[in-house]
């Protein structure tokens, strides 16, 4: 898999979440994702960036335009050095929340991505990757 462009964005406030959304949208258009797919990945980015802000104490989002043979896609990486997720399986369940949200964030975001992975170590942080292919 080759990476064409890569944007690195700090997420430290609610305004940064808005900026991440705008940049993901711009890149999704560039890759040529359909309107529905654009909407899905921008929504996933919004959920994951906000999660990172609310539970991980902020972090970094990397937006990559990737290609794999003929296919092009968008790969988003969310990294924080927050408390980590103790039970990933539980955190992915709808209805799970450790804060005031609806508990749809992680599981919902996963459904909006073609590829999704979580790496997390309690006390060290969390790394979430979400990709959507054209």
């Amino acid at each position: 898999m080759a990476t064409t462009t890569s944007d690195r964005m700090e997420v430290r406030s609610s305004d940064d979440v808005v900026r991440v959304r705008q940049q993901v949208r711009a890149r999704a258009v560039e890759v040529g994702l359909s309107l529905v797919d654009q909407t899905k990945i921008v929504t996933a980015a919004s959920e994951l960036a906000r999660n990172m802000l609310d539970y991980g104490g902020g972090g970094v989002t990397t937006i990559e335009v990737v290609s794999d043979g003929m296919r092009r896609g968008l790969r988003l990486v969310f990294e924080d050095t927050g408390p980590g997720i103790a039970d990933i399986e539980l955190a992915l369940k709808d209805g799970f929340t450790s804060g005031s949200g609806l508990g749809l964030g992680l599981g919902g975001a996963k459904r909006l991505c073609n590829e999704f992975s979580i790496d997390s170590k309690p006390g060290e942080g969390t790394r979430i990757v979400c990709a959507r292919w054209k």
Binding site: L35, T39, E47, G108, R111, L112
Partner: peptide, 13 residues
Amino acid sequence: RPAVAITLVELGL
């Protein structure tokens, strides 16, 4: 918007 409705349902909302 239609795309928003599709996404919301998939999100679980």
